[in-house]
Design a protein around this nucleic acid. Sequence first.
DNA 1: ATATACAAATAAAACGTTTTCGGAAAACGT
DNA 2: ACGTTTTCCGAAAACGTTTTATTTGTATAT
Lengths: 337, 337
Amino acid sequence: MVTLKMLAQACNVSIATVSKALNGAPDIGLETAARIQKTAQQMGYIPSAAARNLKTNRSHCFGVIFDDGTESGLAHEFFANMLESFKHQAELMGYDIFLISGQPGPWGSDYVSHARYRNCDGVLIMVGDNVVSCGQELVMAGIPAVAVDYGVDNCSTIHSDNVRGMAELVRYVHSQGHRTIAAVFGEDCPVTRLRAASFYRTCAELGVEVPDEYVRTSLYHDMDSAILATRQLLALPRRPTCILYPDDYAAIGGMNEIERAGLSIPGDVSVTGFDGSLLARYARPRMTTVQQNTRDMGIAAARELARAVEEGRGFLPRDITIPCTLLPGETVRKLGL
Amino acid sequence: MVTLKMLAQACNVSIATVSKALNGAPDIGLETAARIQKTAQQMGYIPSAAARNLKTNRSHCFGVIFDDGTESGLAHEFFANMLESFKHQAELMGYDIFLISGQPGPWGSDYVSHARYRNCDGVLIMVGDNVVSCGQELVMAGIPAVAVDYGVDNCSTIHSDNVRGMAELVRYVHSQGHRTIAAVFGEDCPVTRLRAASFYRTCAELGVEVPDEYVRTSLYHDMDSAILATRQLLALPRRPTCILYPDDYAAIGGMNEIERAGLSIPGDVSVTGFDGSLLARYARPRMTTVQQNTRDMGIAAARELARAVEEGRGFLPRDITIPCTLLPGETVRKLGL
DNA sequence: ATATACAAATAAAACGTTTTCGGAAAACGT
DNA sequence: ACGTTTTCCGAAAACGTTTTATTTGTATAT
């Protein structure tokens, strides 16, 4: 391993000079700096992140926290996509990505200690019930954090514009002539509440009545509960003409159940998803859904986190809302009025 | 930040004693050790990974290399799933995951330097054209590496049993009565070659002739080239009754093109995919495909990498083949003979 | 009693950086 | 000629650990 010391010897200068030359410090002669840089190049010098980290107390790393209990981690398209763009943007800004678990280790057995152990400059909290507590603890520990979807005090939050997304979806369905609209929502959480509120509000604005039995609660990304909710909705005396699902995956489950009941999509029942996943885009019939802009969300998250790191104590957290776009497919039938 | 020094003062012992007590060294009295551990707990001590890394020259990190040029990274279900299980297994064995890019940074601008900069104990090479060169350089640099799918000298490799997978697929299709079987292969690479060889061999064993025009080359995960290949195959005077695609995504593209041509699946043309993605499982008709066991692949990769790290110089790389399983769907028609 | 072994604890060096402070030499102004 | 500034470079401390070699004190064997 080539170290600063070796370069210093090779160049007949001090370690300090080498360090400064390689970091572009202003108090090194141009000629000397060039000579040192050339030698470093030739000898294949690579700095030691660990030594830097130790000395400067900066790791140039962002930690990413998933919920590794429930399988809602990397495997989910939404998170994978968001992580991909987050990573890309972070790298552009000089940060590497570290995957943080809550598994036991030399640090203890929680996310926050893990992030501290690795000295992450900032942390992206992707999801999980414990998002809020994690966020709080990170902030307490002085580690800047950005949360996705969930709102955490003193943390910036990135989320899709669920309110507008849902409103657009309802308006679209309404514009296609649907007046008996059912909705399946995911488990209770901030996002669900926003979407539900927007659903009720938009329906009210459009003069669409929403009987209680038209609204069901299931779980995100859970086929079984979506199927159950669908069965209940289909059994209703006045069957809804359209069902809104909490995500594309659930919608697929619902679609399967609808067809199993001998009904056609969108002939007998129209459906919509949420997310704009590959599943929705390549399902046949192509699913009508709301596309979450994971790319922009990832980029915004990285930028925000970098800002939080740089501004330090004085950082003012904020809510960042990323627009989502209606993705009309073939699962919503145009009804004659 | 609580350091060993502070604990030493608090406990009236030396730093060395604290270090050893916390690491369970044998030459510390039980009573003293207990006292120190309790104090560490109370004061909220968390060790510094950076200092450890610097001193021991071990980071307890695995780097993961994607191809971040082409978008074939995290966003791909196969890799995301594999990474998920790799991560989980690695964490169980005490390794954290670091995402390595080839972006420019303090290390230079290639994957290998990046991994060296971060002092990764081992590296998982997920994919990319430059897998081979990366692997070589890592080995040269003394960093253990494990490659996925590609074969690299002095690196262990993890891959699906492509040969058996393809053979089973062909036999299954044959068992359903198909005798005019077309195949679309991905771009040339070890995996493609294995699958192609297995295809030809199995066809020969079954007495199925494969005219050259029944075989097309496209790109993995590329819809356009799959569509083009499909168009060519459909235009053939003697249209194949079944088309094997290189992956599920490509198969979806093919299916779209087949239906656009006014043909039905599997009524007029049968198709198969490869991977066993969500796309295949929830496509309608449900796609017949070969499921790659990403879970076992990830686990095997992590275990192998840990082994490589522990055994050091004397490590003997090997090829690890993970079985894949035929996943019959509804896209292969049973033909009357 | 002395030598020998062992247990428990420590001092100190080292890992590879960054950075503060200061010094030498050269350039400048008078 | 002298003081002053500027330019370039180096000495040394520090970051938080691990680890080797050593010391101190106590128990065992002769």
